[in-house]
Every structure is written in structure tokens, then in C-alpha cells.
């Protein structure tokens, strides 16, 4: 890793203050030279400063749910996370057709080439179901770690379904399944399936096909990726799917 104090070439930074995690990346015009991510917590501005501490860069752009908080004290400008995701995904996969993003509190599907070549998007943000938060609550209820949740779900002996789409109701449904003695891996699978079904509604609504990119922290979950691949077989998962928005912001900084 290059010495963060020495700037002998231009560097650009992106700061993505998400509802759950804040991500900071430094980009040298060709590649990401540094990135860091931490839970956003209650003081995103101090956290952002901490993540940025010691890094030199020429320009920075903010994005994410907390983008306004960072502007102008930390970054002179911001872009929305939709634009940031498009820029970031296209950088790693220039041919990509769409971005499927599941973040902490919402999920989005962005079709890159919509009407008149302009990106079109669908967001589900009315409730926590279909978000990272939902997975987290369910993993906890079923006694799995968030990291292993997807892997365990993939080993489910049964292809079960849950009917509730609301986090609160789904939780009670899950509890009643546990009390019936159903294998918790099967219940885990059903939880993943319910999110995938929600995503599929948005994917179909926008008529997305081809090489889509799966971003956001939930993209690290193998079961989610596998289920989304049923409708999007060419789905790509970047190495660090949670920083794609921050990379997009850094790319915007570079453009300016």
C-alpha cells in the first residue's frame, strides 16, 4: 500500500455515508489505493473524518444517505447514491446493464440504459423488509452469524417459503417455524428467498437482463447472489461490493 502521507500523483476520494456503514476510498485515477468502512453510528461526520485521517487527496465527493451531512464541511459537493453506483459499477464492469444494490435499509435496481439512454431505477424503501437490516434481524433470530447466514442457507434441506413481507410479521412467522421444529437452515433459505422475490419484482418491472452488478454489503452473501442468479445468470459480484458507491463518488471527483 502506498504511503498515505505522500502524494506524488493526483488522488481522488469518495465518501459514502450509508445508513448502516460509512465507506471511504482513495482512487489514483486507475485503481483504488485505499478503502475503509465502519458502521455509521450516531456521528457520521466524526466517523468520516476518522476514516479520512492522514489521507491526502486532491478532490473529494460525498454520496449516500448522509451526503448532506458531509457537504460542505468535508466534501464540497455530493452526488446521489444512484449516480455513484452507476459510475462505480461501470468502472469495474464497463459493459454492465444494471446495478442491483441491497444496502442496510433499502434496496435498489438501476437499469443503466433506460429510456433515451438515461438510467432508470426502482427503490424499495418503505420498510426494512428486503434490506440488509432484515437479513440481520433474521440471522439473529435464527442464531446464525451474519457472515455465515448465506452459506448456511444454501445448505438447506428444504426449499421453504415464508409469506410475510414485513420484518415484524416475518419474524413471528420465523419463530413459529422454529417452534414447529423446522430445520433452521431451511428457514434461513426462506428468508433469503423472500428478499430475492422482492428484488425480482423490481428487476422485472425495469425489464433488466444481461450482465448486472450486485453491490452493497449484502452482495457478500452467497445465498442472495445465488438466488438472484436464477433470474440474472450473468450477475457479477465485485470483490468489495460495499465500496462501489464510494468509488463512484471518487470517479466523479476525478471528472471535475
Amino acid at each position: 500500500m502506498p504511503d498515505k502521507k505522500v502524494s506524488n500523483y493526483l488522488k481522488y476520494a469518495g465518501l459514502d455515508i450509508g445508513s448502516r456503514a460509512t465507506k471511504f476510498v482513495v482512487f489514483d485515477g486507475e485503481k483504488v489505493v485505499h478503502w475503509a468502512s465502519e458502521l455509521t453510528g450516531y456521528d457520521p461526520v466524526s466517523l468520516s473524518r476518522k476514516l479520512m485521517d492522514g489521507w491526502l487527496f486532491d478532490r473529494i465527493i460525498a454520496t449516500g444517505y448522509g451526503r448532506h451531512l458531509a457537504t460542505p464541511s468535508i466534501a464540497p459537493r455530493y452526488i446521489t447514491e444512484i449516480k455513484a453506483l452507476v459510475l462505480g459499477a461501470r468502472f469495474f464492469y464497463p459493459e454492465c446493464t444494471a446495478v442491483i444494490d441491497i444496502g442496510g435499509q433499502d434496496c435498489k435496481v438501476i437499469k443503466i440504459n433506460g429510456k433515451n439512454g438515461i438510467p432508470e431505477f426502482e427503490m424499495n424503501d418503505r420498510c426494512a423488509a428486503g434490506s440488509g437490516k432484515f437479513l440481520e434481524v433474521m440471522a439473529h433470530t435464527l442464531g446464525f452469524s451474519l457472515q455465515n447466514f448465506g452459506r448456511e442457507a444454501l445448505q438447506s434441506p428444504e426449499r421453504l417459503k415464508i409469506t410475510s413481507t414485513c420484518t415484524v410479521f416475518a419474524e413471528s412467522e420465523v419463530i413459529s417455524l422454529i417452534s414447529k421444529g423446522i430445520d433452521r437452515k431451511s428457514i434461513a433459505y426462506a428468508v433469503h428467498r423472500s428478499i430475492a422475490d422482492r428484488m425480482n419484482v423490481m428487476i422485472e418491472k425495469l425489464n433488466v437482463s444481461g450482465r448486472a452488478v450486485f453491490t452493497g454489503g449484502v452482495a457478500r452473501n452467497d445465498c442472495m447472489a445465488a438466488l438472484l442468479r436464477e433470474s440474472l445468470p450473468e450477475l457479477e459480484v465485485p470483490d468489495n461490493p460495499e465500496i462501489i458507491g464510494a468509488v463512484g463518488a471518487a470517479l466523479e471527483a476525478l471528472k471535475q
Binding site: Y65, T80, E81, I82, K83, P119, F121, M123
Partner: peptide, 9 residues
């Protein structure tokens, strides 16, 4: 955010 993103696009 929806409106802002739409205008940005």
C-alpha cells in the same frame, strides 16, 4: 433522494 436522482440522471 428519488427526485434528486431522477434530475441528476
Amino acid at each position: 433522494l428519488r427526485i434528486e436522482s431522477f434530475i441528476e440522471m
